[in-house]
């Protein structure tokens, strides 16, 4: 027996980004939960989202070059509805803008665990 958080990590480790969908109210849910935050139902099922999303907001976190330099942090709205914090890899952080169309990719591994990042569509 294991909970949704642990399932989510297992999917990522297998190379699958999954989110939940509520059978009771049809809402999509992220981050993974035991109860739907919209209607309270526990009828949450795993689905594979399209991976497509749009940048809702974005910032350049300024950092000294010797510490790794500037980096992006953004919020992405998935096509299915849920929003997640992430980053867009590829373009320089300052070139990432609100409204940019992006696609999910699994990153990380090792001690950091797996997590979802995005790349601009068409790259």
């Amino acid at each position: 027996m294991q909970g949704p958080e642990s399932h989510y990590q297992e999917y990522l480790a297998k190379g699958e980004f999954r989110i939940q969908r509520c059978d009771a109210c049809n809402s999509h849910v992220f981050y993974p939960r035991l109860l739907c935050p919209h209607c309270g139902s526990s009828a949450l099922k795993w689905i594979v989202p399209s991976g497509a999303g749009t940048v809702y907001s974005t910032t350049v976190m300024r950092r000294r070059p010797e510490a790794g330099g500037d980096y992006n942090v953004c919020l992405v709205d998935l096509e299915e509805g849920p929003r997640l914090m992430s980053r867009v890899d590829g373009p320089p952080p300052a070139a990432i803008g609100i409204g940019m169309r992006v696609k999910a990719r699994i990153a990380g591994g090792g001690d950091a665990g797996f997590f979802v990042v995005f790349e601009p569509v068409g790259n």
């Binding site: 992220f30 907001s57 974005t58 910032t59 953004c74 914090m85 950091a112 997590f115």
Partner: peptide, 24 residues
């Protein structure tokens, strides 16, 4: 914060994101 740790967000990050969105 769950599912935010991997992206090295700081306290200021959230407020910067809100600012950028308000400007947009």
């Amino acid at each position: 914060i769950p599912y935010e740790g991997a992206y090295d967000a700081r306290l200021v990050t959230a407020y910067a994101l809100a600012t950028a969105r308000h400007m947009h």
